[in-house]
Design a protein around this nucleic acid. Sequence first.
DNA 1: TAGTTATCTGACTTGCAGTCAGTTATACGT
DNA 2: ACGTATAACTGACTGCAAGTCAGATAACTA
Lengths: 216, 216
Amino acid sequence: MVLPANRKRARSDSEKEARRGAILDAARRLIDQDGFDGVTMSAVAKEAAVSKGTLYLYVHTKEELFLALFVEAMEQVVCRIEAEATSVTLIEVMGRVPAEVPLFVPLLARLVAVIEANVPDEPLFAEKRRMHTMGARVARLISNVTGAPEDLARDASKALMLTMQGAAQFDIAARRDLSGVPDDLRPAFEGQEFSCSFPLAARLILSGLTPSSAVN
Amino acid sequence: MVLPANRKRARSDSEKEARRGAILDAARRLIDQDGFDGVTMSAVAKEAAVSKGTLYLYVHTKEELFLALFVEAMEQVVCRIEAEATSVTLIEVMGRVPAEVPLFVPLLARLVAVIEANVPDEPLFAEKRRMHTMGARVARLISNVTGAPEDLARDASKALMLTMQGAAQFDIAARRDLSGVPDDLRPAFEGQEFSCSFPLAARLILSGLTPSSAVN
DNA sequence: TAGTTATCTGACTTGCAGTCAGTTATACGT
DNA sequence: ACGTATAACTGACTGCAAGTCAGATAACTA
């Protein structure tokens, strides 16, 4: 509960934002604790100390809740990349930062097939706008840092996005409990972590347009 | 029903395979008709003209059913790529064939986050083996066709897999009904089809290791 | 203080995945 | 041909989680 001590209802906009924030925090805690599939809306409501009905006043669906978490994580990722990337460190930073921001990779993995598929139009469009703006910032950054021409940088940026999506998928498989996996299948799971597979692919993609100093 | 006219039960292995095939076909028809989210196990049972209980004798979960459909589609894709790819056509073929095999792209998009997450260990391992074998075949093909050294070809093959995963995700977004999407967001959906985004990225990845003739 | 508004509540509805005790087609032995 | 054993088959049922809504009440307003 983030409302002032003897306040039971959020009337002002800022109070509502605080409550929504509390709900997102509760969800983050539960995901941490039980994984995505262990999270139920009843549990989120309980953890946030509100009723289920109230929860649904703040998000339309469970997936809208996850989408909000993703966009917040993506904002962190983009800001940190902008802050840390130079022509020397671009690939290293792009490989490392996404994996360091909590929930970014697992939410990205579920973004299209699970999350966006079940968010009503208006909230989806609003979040898409935020995401698109951030995408453009990354493309600009790549162009600036590598000195590649605009259109090539845009292609590379798109390809990076695809690859990041894919790497996020493989990351799920990599985090599976390996006891019980037969030896001959280990390689299909092991070493598929995002921070391992993505930089490798990013290097292949960026090496075509970046000064050689940034590739190593 | 694929069983001989006056046969009501599948006793022999071949009859069981026939019945399983009939179930997969029924599922394919329903996915075609209602999309993934419209498919229920009750509907699959009805379409296959068996009871729900029987359906569950042939697959452990709904996702195991989808996984089986995916592996069959992937087999088609790999066979066709092997048959059609030459050093000149590699990129073109790899960009086109996956999009041409029905269900391959949408199932790939859901493979990790949705499907593999809900298949019991033993059937999952069995299908993984088949997938892994096919992956190795593709890596070998790339090495042969481009003349790239083994390890580089393996990296490129991995990167291609990541990218294909990502492109499949974007394809879902691209197939959304666009009426109702505000004009400023159109670019976020349009032109993201698999057959458009994947070849572009594949070219970037393969251009580093392929003779120039194959890049154009 | 009474009246009004809109937040909040939680029992309820809905819908689907997956189960299991009972039924019966088929194979096999006599 | 007939009885018995086996295992394929059935569909009503259970469990569970998402999402709803009519009523309760905190907080603002005159």
